[in-house]
């Protein structure tokens, strides 16, 4: 019997930020990350019938997202590869140079750091899932998007003291959760 249910109408609310954080750490481009996530949601809609409910909805979406990220890299690598052959590595003398350039690739050296950041990011998002929707929205706007207090108050129609109460509760809950699930492990 399946334990999990699928509900696409709540995907954006529940998973868009989590998927966005996951994707941007792998593609390093905001616009591309948004496109990949949108594609993931569309692909999820198309293959909804295949959802067996054995894994959570988020895990299922992540598995689709991973394939989308691989597709993206396959696409740009095939384009990039063709360009390199045409433009740079067109003589026998230069053959093999590309390998050294790859070894020196800074992006490759930072892979471990990126992975750790993603894991930490995922842990924070897991803890944020436990906040109320209001708390999560205010917290994200203030802490991640770095909005001014006044801008948040105007957009959400709340007072500054309301905002600080929400921030206080969110921070307390997050600190407790991180203490339990991240710092102790």
């Amino acid at each position: 019997m399946s334990n999990h249910h699928i509900n696409p109408s709540r995907w954006i609310e529940l998973y868009s930020d989590y998927l966005f954080n996951y994707t941007i750490s792998r593609v390093n481009d905001r616009e591309i990350a948004k496109d990949i996530i949108q594609d993931t949601f569309f692909a999820g809609l198309k293959s909804m019938k295949n959802f067996k409910g054995e894994a959570s909805e988020r895990t299922w979406l992540i598995s689709i997202l991973k394939r989308k990220i691989i597709d993206y890299y396959r696409k740009i690598n095939s384009r990039k590869g063709q360009a390199e052959v045409r433009m740079t590595y067109n003589t026998d003398e230069n053959e093999g140079d590309w390998l050294e350039e790859r070894v020196e690739d800074e992006g490759y050296l930072n892979a471990q750091e990126t992975l750790e950041n993603t894991e930490l990011g995922n842990a924070i998002y897991d803890c944020m899932d436990k906040l109320s929707e209001r708390q999560a929205t205010v917290f994200k706007m203030k802490t991640i998007l770095n909005y001014e207090t006044e801008a948040i108050c105007n957009e959400l129609n709340i007072t500054a003291s309301n905002l600080w109460v929400i921030i206080h509760r969110a921070r307390t809950a997050l600190a407790e959760c991180m203490e339990k699930h991240w710092f102790k492990s």
Binding site: S16, D17, F20, N21, I24, S25, R30, K34, N117, L120, G121, I124, Y125, K140, T143, I144, L145, R171, L174, A175, M178, W182
Partner: peptide, 13 residues
Amino acid sequence: LTKTLKSSNLECL
């Protein structure tokens, strides 16, 4: 918590 959040380079939409 602030230090952790900063080091995570967290992003959202």
